[in-house]
Each structure stands twice: as C-alpha cells, then as structure tokens.
Amino acid sequence: MTLLSAPVEYVPTGRLRISGLPRLARRHPLVVIGGGLLALLIVLALAAPLYAGDPLNMDPFKRLQPPSAEMWFGSDNLGRDVFARTIFGARISLMVGLLSAAGAALGGVLIGVIAGYNRGFDNIVMRVMDGLMSIPTILLAIALISLTGPGIAILIVAITIPQMPSVSRLVRSAVLSVRERPYVEAALCGGARLPKVLWRHILPSTIPSLMVQSAIVCADAILTEAGLSFLGVGVPPEIPSWGNMISSSRLYLAIAPLTVFAPGICLAVTVLAVNLLGDGLRDLFDPRAKRRRR
C-alpha cells in the first residue's frame, strides 16, 4: 500500500504563486493523486481494446493456469485471460461507480435543496424518500434484478435509487442548518430572490458534504456491485467486472490467487482514488476548511 505512505503534505500557501498543475499539486495533493489515479484508470479502461486481448475467449483446457507471457495474470476457471478481464472489468466497475454517483448527486441535490428550503414540499418528498430509503439497497437490487434479470443498466438504477435519498437528506440537513444563519437571512431581507439565494448562498455551503458523500456513493456503488455479485445477482457472469471476478473466483484463491487478487487490488485502489479525490475536492471547494491549518 505505497499509496497510503506516500507523502501527503499540506503546504501552507497563499503567498506562493505557482500557476497550473504544479501549484494545484502543491496546494491540493489529494486532488492530484486521487484525480490522477482515477483519470489513469479511466484512460486504461477506455484503451482496453488496444492492448488487453480478448476477455471473453474461453479455453477449458487452460483453466486456472499460472501467469505466463501469453496470459500475464494467468487464467480463470473457464480458461479466460485474467489480465484482459481485469482491464475490461475496469470499464464496468468504473461505469457503475461514476454513473451511480452522478445520478445520485444530481437527483439528491435537486430534491435536498428544495426540500430543505420549502417546508411543504419537504414533507411530501422526504416521505417518498423515506419510503425509497427504507428498503435496503441490497434487497431492492436483488428484487429489481430478479424482475429483469442481471444487467448493467438495471444494476446502476438499483444502486442509484436508494442512494439518492441519502444525498438529498444530507443536503437537506445542511440546508436546514444553513438557512437559519444570519448571512442567509440577511440576503433574503435584502431583497434577494429565492433561487439566487439558493444558488449563491445555500448550495455552495452544501458542496463539502456533497463531495464527501459523492465519493462515498461512488465507492459504495463499486462495492455494492461486488456484494451483489457475491450474492449471485450482480453483473451478468460473462461480462467481466471486478465484483463478479472476485466472487466467481473466490473458491480458487488457493489454486490461482491472481484470479482474486488482480481484480481485488484494482477495486481497492479505485475506491481509494475516489475517496482521496473526494477529500481533496472538499478542501479545494471549501476555502473555509483551509483555515483550520493555522
């Protein structure tokens, strides 16, 4: 875990005037490390067809082979190339994570901000959110997937729906405590229009929590996909995702460790990158948070 021991130094700045990326790296190393890692993973995933080989090709007579020049990470229980599957798996896992986070954040902010501000709306919408949320993600996902059969789209929907209320609640509770603050009251008394107040004063204050939460949703989505695969209702077995690779190979850990470790380490690194990025962005977007580093 070299990533964790990497120097993550905060440099007290303000006077330094370095432009561009080096400056960002100095001031917000987490953004650069997390974001860079994530960007790298995305590029590797997108470029997969150029270098990774065929993730679907099976050879039952070459199952559970050790790593070789031909198959860098060896082969899985159906004789498929673990390296190719791990690289192609990044596409699915990242897609599930990013789309779920984006969906949950968009929906959640919209609902949360309005609910936090308008009490009438609040009561109705938050009860609907309660209803949605009160069904645990995993159970909802299992039920939805048993309705349609496994598929990536339904998986993303099943993960996003129950995450939306949690974002909206977080945003709402932040709005609830912000709206009583003097500067918001002052702005309203000063004749500012409501949408403008929401946009200028309330929304920005929710960004730190939102960033942390979005990172959590993204990471959680990737992990939920793994958990659902463990229960046998994740991504269809043919399509490689880290989750279904780990769970379908878990019996072979002793015989062919890479079948589990390759996707496992990728998954952990990705989740880590997302979390680091979330933390870094929090500092970046929230100038007030930096004052703590007196």
């Binding site: 679907l56 090709n57 099976m58 039952p60 229980n77 159906l78 496994p150 046998g232 209702v233 269809p236 077995p237 043919e238 379908s248």
Partner: peptide, 18 residues
Amino acid sequence: LDPTDIPILDNPSQLLAA
C-alpha cells in the same frame, strides 16, 4: 438460460454460448 446461482450449470452455459 443461464442459472447464475448454480455454478455447476452456470459454467457450461457460458461455455456453450462461447
């Protein structure tokens, strides 16, 4: 038809498709 909850039937289903 591929029963993903029964590994001993899931494996040959995938192989057959391929």
